[in-house]
């Protein structure tokens, strides 16, 4: 596709059902990962696809009769998903990656339930990038009530299991806690960036519930009891 300057860019197009909050989740996830310095796609775009384009790209989905559909384009990351190779080839590198602790802490913060091996791209020389944040907030069909109910509920942090075998060592735990200590300031600095988009995608009550959820999970020492 062409970017906003008319330059060609290789990107992946994602479109989501109307009743899904996946686009909102993707936007917030990308903004917060970037803010935490975690490698992810360099750029993403909200693009408006026509009904005809949607039907051509995703023929198996019923897109109804809406003319325009807000969708996501994610700049391609060169590399291979870590799921493409056997674990022995990347597990040591992933454990040593400088963003592993922030990445695990971020998943814990956002209630990112799908940080599977296919969503970590090995970009070579010991570097990785995290993609696909549609399943933040426990999944794309979250509700304010569900967020409130699960603010402190444990969940299966896939990134924790992929990188650290499910149990953090004391040093790893400390690294994750240090990363988590930045979450509150990240949220404060970037919440406006998120609401720039969310104001048009979500209802005020949903936005408020998500903010409350993130704020509670960014509290001092919150991560100490999680990993």
């Amino acid at each position: 596709m062409l970017d906003e300057y008319g330059n060609e860019v290789k990107a992946h197009i994602k479109a989501f059902p109307a009743d899904s909050k996946a686009l909102a989740n993707e936007l917030a996830g990308w903004i917060l990962h970037r803010a935490a310095g975690i490698e992810t796609a360099e750029r993403i775009w909200v693009i408006i696809l026509s009904n005809a384009e949607l039907r051509a790209l995703f023929p198996a989905v019923d897109w109804g009769d809406a003319d325009d559909w807000p969708s996501l384009a994610v700049q391609h990351i060169s590399g291979q998903p870590v799921s493409a190779k056997s674990a022995e080839l990347w597990v040591d590198e992933l454990a040593a990656w400088h963003s592993t602790a922030p990445c695990i802490a971020m998943a814990e913060w956002l209630w990112e339930i799908d940080g599977n091996a296919g969503n970590l791209i090995n970009t070579g020389r010991g570097e990785f990038a995290a993609i696909d944040f549609a399943d933040s907030f426990g999944g794309p069909h979250w509700t304010p009530a569900r967020l409130r109910k699960n603010t402190h509920a444990p969940f299966y942090n896939k990134r924790l299991h992929i990188a650290w075998g499910g149990i953090a060592t004391p040093a790893q735990r400390q690294a994750a806690q240090e990363s988590a200590a930045r979450h509150a300031s990240i949220l404060a600095r970037h919440w406006r960036d998120i609401t720039h988009w969310w104001d048009h995608l979500l209802k005020p009550k949903q936005i408020q519930a998500a903010h409350d959820f993130l704020l509670a999970r960014a509290a001092v020492n919150w991560m100490d009891h999680r990993l």
Binding site: M1, E4, G6, E8, I44, W45, V46, I47, I48, L49
Partner: peptide, 19 residues
């Protein structure tokens, strides 16, 4: 005339920064 990915909505202030 323009290319694929019709009607791109781009960020208002941040240039290449997607969101």
């Amino acid at each position: 005339t323009r290319d694929a990915a019709a009607s791109a909505v781009v960020p208002p202030k941040r240039g290449g920064h997607g969101q």
